[in-house]
Design a protein around this nucleic acid. Structure first.
Length: 271
DNA sequence: AATCGCGCCTGACGGC
DNA sequence: TGCCGTCAGGCGCGAT
């Protein structure tokens, strides 16, 4: 499932293929993703030149002088650059065909992803306007997270996964960052002291940047943008390791549901 | 305002 | 083998 590092890796992978290229055609084979792809998308894009490929949280922003295509990869989405003539597979829902006969192809078996259009400043789009800070920017720091978490009774894991607080911390990296910070995922956010919050900010930044360097954690069906299966997963300390020994102390990793999501932690190392 | 739970969707997996 | 039920999971949204 693409998390922020996967999205960033994708962005870096596709950018050199797209930048300054002109769009010749848009093929939508399946418009029903999380939201229906706007029927006007092709008309907006055809003939336009791609001027920038940015990211906000897990949203990719592909801009032309005419406006911005906003993409989200959801749970199972991936983007690849293929020759335009490449036969499409079952879940290849959208092609952005370039004038140079190359093609940006969106594949998304579970269709939790999205392709939207925003005429003006994409950051003003309803889905982006209220997003929290970027985890790798300086604005995400101990002071910010400490202040934001005061009086909050929600568990720290749910808190750091709240995109209105900080974007791009998904289930895998939330579990991993909490382990590295020695914090139990179930502790109320508002009861964690400044020093431990500082520590958590550091581990979130570390775990995300390491994954970006590694090319993104890849589970199941993520595919790197060059089409090769991405296989550069960093060592996961707790995620998916229910009943296995903690690498740090040897005691058994616990799994429990938190807000319908799996939390993994070590009872001994995380307090 | 903060928190909770739902639902979208398909592939993988386990049980019989 | 094949069928079927269950699960995973980002995240917006409506309910509380």
């Amino acid at each position: 499932m693409p998390e922020l590092p996967e999205v960033e890796t994708t962005r870096l992978g596709i950018t050199p293929h797209l930048l300054n290229q002109s769009i010749a055609n848009v093929i939508v084979r399946q418009a029903k993703l999380r939201w229906t792809i706007p029927a006007s998308l092709a008309a907006k894009l055809i003939g336009q030149t791609i001027t920038a490929i940015d990211r906000r949280g897990k949203y990719l922003l592909i801009s032309t002088t005419n406006g911005t295509m906003i993409m989200h990869l959801g749970m199972s989405g991936s983007l690849r650059i293929v020759p335009a003539a490449t036969e499409s597979g079952k879940h290849d829902h959208v092609d952005i065909v370039l004038a140079n006969d190359s093609c940006l192809r969106l594949r998304d078996p579970r269709r939790f992803g999205a392709v939207l259009w925003q005429q003006n400043n994409p950051l003003q789009h309803k889905l982006l306007a209220k997003l929290g800070v970027e985890p790798l920017e300086h604005e995400f720091n101990g002071e910010y997270l400490f202040n934001a978490s005061r009086q909050r009774k929600i568990a720290i894991k749910q808190f750091i996964m709240n995109s209105h607080i900080v974007v791009g911390v998904g289930n895998i990296y939330a579990n991993e960052a909490l382990f590295l910070a020695g914090i139990r995922p179930t502790i109320a956010a508002g009861r964690i002291n400044r020093q431990r919050i500082d520590n958590l900010v550091t581990t979130i930044k570390n775990v995300l940047s390491k994954a970006i360097k590694a090319g993104g954690t890849t589970l199941r069906d993520f595919t790197a943008s060059d089409g090769k299966p991405g296989y550069f997963q960093q060592q996961l300390n707790v995620y998916n390791r229910n009943n296995e020994p903690c690498y740090q102390c040897g005691s058994t990793i616990i799994m429990r549901q938190q807000n319908q999501r799996a939390s993994y932690y070590c009872r001994h190392c995380q307090t």
